[in-house]
Structure formats: C-alpha cells, structure tokens
Design a protein around this nucleic acid. Structure first.
Length: 293
DNA sequence: TATTCGTGGCT
DNA sequence: TAGCCAAGAAT
C-alpha cells in the first residue's frame, strides 16, 4: 500500500472534522482564551462529559483570570468538585495569579510564557497556543499519540512516554499553514476521541482507515512494555479523596469524621499532613481541618 | 525516568 | 468483575 501524501491525509482528517466536530463551550468564536485555558486544566486526565458542567460554573463565577485570582484557594478547590486531582484547582488559581501579575490579566499568547505558568506543561501550552490563538504547534496528547502511532507506525498503543520518533512524526505531519495547523491539531485529537478510541475503534467510520498502517497490518496487539495500571483500593490517593470529599461538603472536618472515613491511623495522618503540605487543607484548630480560606 | 496524584463510567 | 481508561504535570 502506498503511503498517502500529507495533503491527502490532511484533507481526509480536516474534512471529517468539519462534519463531525462536537460543539464544545471552549470551542467556537465566543470562547475566550481564559475559557480555553480553564478547559485544558480540567481536561487533564478527565473526560469531557465530566468537565462540561464544572467548566460552565467556573466561567460563570470567574469570567477572567483576575476574578479567580481574587478568591481564596479553598473556593477554587470547592468549585473543582469531583473532577479529581484537586491540585489542578490550586495550580489553575496560581496560574491566574501569575497572569495578573506578569501579563496584565490577559492569558499570554506565547508558548514560552504559557509553559512558565503553574500547571502548564508542554501539552497544555501547545494546546492553548493552538486552540485559543490559532498558532502552529505540535499538540501531542493521548488521543493524537494513539492516532499517529496507529496510522503511521502500525501499532495499537503508543509507548508509555512520548518518544523522539513520535514527535518527529507529528512534526512532519503538521501542516505548514498556521491556521490549518491549528485545525489539524484539534481535528486529530477529536478523531482519537470519537473514532480511533483506545478500546473499540470505529474503523468503519474512520476517514483514514484505508491508509492506516495498524489496520493494514491486521490490527496487531500491543507488544510494548507493560502499561502500568493505577492502583486505587487502599492507596493514599483513595484516602486523600475521602478526606477531600468531606472537606468540600462541610465547612470543616474533625478527627472523628476523618477516622470514620479512613480507619487506618498511620495512613490517615500521613494523608492529612500531605494535604496540608499541598495546600489543599488547613488545620484550623487541633483536630479540625478545612479548605484554605 | 519512574511515581504520584482523583474520580467514575465502561466492558 | 476487575481492570482499563480519560485533552498531564510535577517531582
């Protein structure tokens, strides 16, 4: 099978996106850079359907970075709800503060300035620069990585961490034109999210199925290094989650409530101390904790 | 580079 | 049903 020309690949994916893109609040002409930025923080490791209602609440309450920066960190954590990884709420508020202090309250437009913000790594900086400002960047998230490794390399799943080869492939495929590159980035992500999914890809609905190397090779199973699952039962994360759920629901958490939520003493105390150390909780009196005010 | 860090739906 | 997985970042 001949390799497709980049132009043909672009046309197929961009055409598919034009017909099948979801209408999301952080897309479209009315979306501000701040709305895009909030969405990118929330979408880190969290599905779109769960982000939608929380994103709406945040943008209604804090329509600008300055609005969020003016609030106590505990309010950000409470409004984060059950999205998970609540340190993202702290980082988003810290990023808002940095935007006020360093960028006059406007979300910075350059990749380097974005990358310097708390909670912003390579993916998020590229995504904001591309989606909010229409710039040309390689945007390598889990969806794009899966699409490219399947279509180009013929493997079911990408390696645990981004490889040089992956980035080279993504760079080579990035359209030259700035606006087209930005649409390409969101289109390849959308293709991975809606069609080229991890478990049950809908190859019959895929615009590049005919040139997909993985499909062409007969869908060989992943044979790379084992991908570590995330342990949950009995972990500190579960313990921390229980305590944070109490803190969000109530004005404070007592020792007795924490004991009821997590009987194992040494782990409970370690997690409480860790949450305080992370800035997610404050010990307001001996034996009583609350979200930071 | 390998771990850690929430939450919940899906198969 | 018990994993697997979801627009990652920080350390």
């Amino acid at each position: 099978m001949d390799s497709p020309t980049p132009g043909a690949l672009h046309d197929a994916v961009l055409g598919w996106y034009d017909d099948h893109a979801r209408e999301l609040p952080w897309r479209g002409l009315e979306a501000t850079p701040w709305s895009v930025m909030v969405s990118e923080f929330m979408l880190q490791q969290t599905p779109v359907v769960r982000v939608l209602p929380v994103h709406a609440l945040w943008l209604e309450r804090w329509p600008t970075p300055a609005d969020l920066a003016a609030e106590p960190t505990g309010e950000a954590v409470r409004m984060w709800g059950r999205l998970g990884y609540p340190r993202r709420a702290l980082r988003l508020r810290a990023a808002a503060t940095a935007i006020v202090e360093r960028h006059g309250g406007e979300v910075p437009t350059s990749y380097d300035d974005l990358l310097a913000l708390p909670g912003v790594g390579d993916y998020t900086a590229s995504a904001i620069a591309s989606f909010a400002f229409g710039q040309r960047h390689v945007v390598l998230d889990t969806n794009v990585r899966r699409v490219l490794v399947r279509a180009v390399s013929g493997q079911e799943f990408p390696a645990p961490a981004v490889t040089r080869a992956e980035r080279d492939v993504a760079t080579a495929l990035l359209p030259d034109d700035e606006a087209t590159a930005a649409t390409w980035a969101v289109a390849t992500m959308e293709l991975g999210a809606l069609v080229c999914s991890a478990r049950q890809p809908s190859c019959d609905a895929c615009p590049i199925a005919e040139v997909c190397a993985w499909r062409g090779a007969g869908f060989p199973a992943y044979d790379g290094p084992p991908r570590r699952g995330q342990a949950w039962a009995g972990t500190d994360r579960q313990c921390r989650g229980r305590i944070m759920a109490l803190a969000r629901e109530q004005s404070s958490v007592t020792t007795a409530q924490a004991e009821a939520a997590w009987p194992r003493a040494d782990q409970r105390e370690r997690c409480l101390a860790g949450l305080v150390d992370d800035g997610l909780l404050t010990q307001i009196t001996p034996g009583r904790w609350a979200l930071p005010g």
